[in-house]
Simulated scan of single mutants.
Amino acid sequence: MDRKNTDSLFQELMEQSNLDAYLKENQAHFIGTSVPELLDQLYSTKPISKSALAKRSGISEVYLHQVFSGRRTPSRDRLLCICVGMGATLEETQRLLLQAGYGQLYPRNRRDAIIAHGLLNQIDLGQLNENLFSENEKALC
């Protein structure tokens, strides 16, 4: 089955009067992976311990384990901190944000542009927060 793009799905949704039929016909196209599952998948590709990840993310180990287990839902900023700490790419981060139900980093938003630049250049959290502060933007963690 070919993957439908978002525009196609929206078009079908607008044209379909029967919600049940739309949901049934497009079940294979819905996002089904949870945030903890995506974090686990991403984490498994990174050569870092969870204690080091917590430190690099500026969060406690307890909180990090709760996020990975699904007992806590991180805010957008906390999720970004985890991505920075993990050394995630911009694409990996955008996917996590989308899956978590948060807005992706938007280059027309000054703060988001600074964060995206940090991800693209693999800047650590301390330096990224300094960059945000020097531009009068709120730090991540």
Rank of each mutant, 00 (worst) to 15 (best):
G118N: 08
L13C: 13
G126L: 03
S75D: 03
N129H: 03
V84Q: 05
S49C: 02
T45K: 15
R76A: 01
V35T: 12
L64P: 01
I115V: 15
E137H: 11
E137P: 08
N18V: 11
E92P: 07
I82T: 03
H29I: 02
I123W: 04
K138S: 04
G103F: 10
K138R: 14
L23H: 07
F133D: 12
I123S: 03
P36V: 02
C81L: 08
E135N: 15
P47N: 10
V67E: 00
E91K: 14
I114F: 08
L42S: 09
V67C: 00
C81G: 05
R3D: 00
T6Q: 15
R78L: 03
D2Q: 10
L80M: 11
L19V: 15
D20V: 10
L97A: 12
F133Q: 13
Q27W: 07
D20C: 07
Q94F: 10
L125V: 08
F10L: 15
H65E: 07
A100Y: 08
F68G: 01
L90R: 14
G85S: 04
S51E: 12
D20E: 12
G85K: 06
G126C: 01
P107G: 09
L64N: 00
S44L: 12
A54P: 02
S60A: 00
Q122S: 15
R72H: 03
P47H: 03
Q16Y: 02
Y106G: 00
S17Y: 06
A116I: 14
V35M: 04
G70Q: 05
G85Y: 05
A100N: 03
I31G: 12
E130W: 06
N18Y: 00
H29R: 03
M14Q: 13
H117G: 02
L96F: 13
K46T: 09
R72I: 01
E130C: 06
K50P: 00
T89L: 09
H117S: 02
Y102E: 06
L64G: 00
H65P: 00
K50I: 14
T45L: 13
N131V: 01
R3I: 08
D77T: 02
N5Y: 04
M1A: 12
A88Y: 08
L23A: 13
E25C: 09
T6G: 10
T89E: 12
I123C: 00
A88V: 04
M1I: 09
G85R: 09
L79T: 04
